[in-house]
Amino acid sequence: MICEYCNQREAEAVLKQKLNGKIQIIHLCSVCANSMLLNNFFSDFSVNNIFAKNLETMPKTKKVCSKCGASFEDIVSSGRIGCSYCYDEFANEINRTIEKVHGKAVHIGKKPRSAKKISERKQLIAEYRNKLNKLVVEQEFEEAALLRDKIKMLESEGM
């Protein structure tokens, strides 16, 4: 039997894990066993493995991530994504698995500073656009022209 975690070495140890009241049995090689069993206070090792198994059923692709060089095969075998760019690069392959885990949910939690700026800018552009439409209707063309330039500037910042 081959180790269910690294899929490389011969399994020597059996790991029993109680999860949600059910006992899960996993066969491990001694190297993986040592790194997991003994330091299992917080590690959630089984999760990556399950993710990889989920991906295995996806259609195979020969694409390679242009940023980090990870192939789809690499991601499946390690259960780990290569870089943030992979999420776009392999969107077709990964997104369905993400949906299986998280449903159709969209992030609503904390945002980093950089993302906050982007969403603030988007909001500002939308506001200006509304104003612009009103100005055009009111035939205030001079002010409208100024506003149009502002919008153009904001949009170019986001490129």
Binding site: N48, V101, H107, P112, S119
Partner: peptide
């Protein structure tokens, strides 16, 4: 850290992580 560097982040997926199980808040 957020004040000094840029995190890998996506508007819809939240904080990007090695395992897709942690996407979103990436909080355990």
């Amino acid at each position: 850290f957020d004040n000094s560097l840029s995190y890998a982040f996506d508007e819809k997926k939240g904080y990007l992580t090695t395992s897709p199980y942690d996407l979103g808040t990436a909080l355990r």
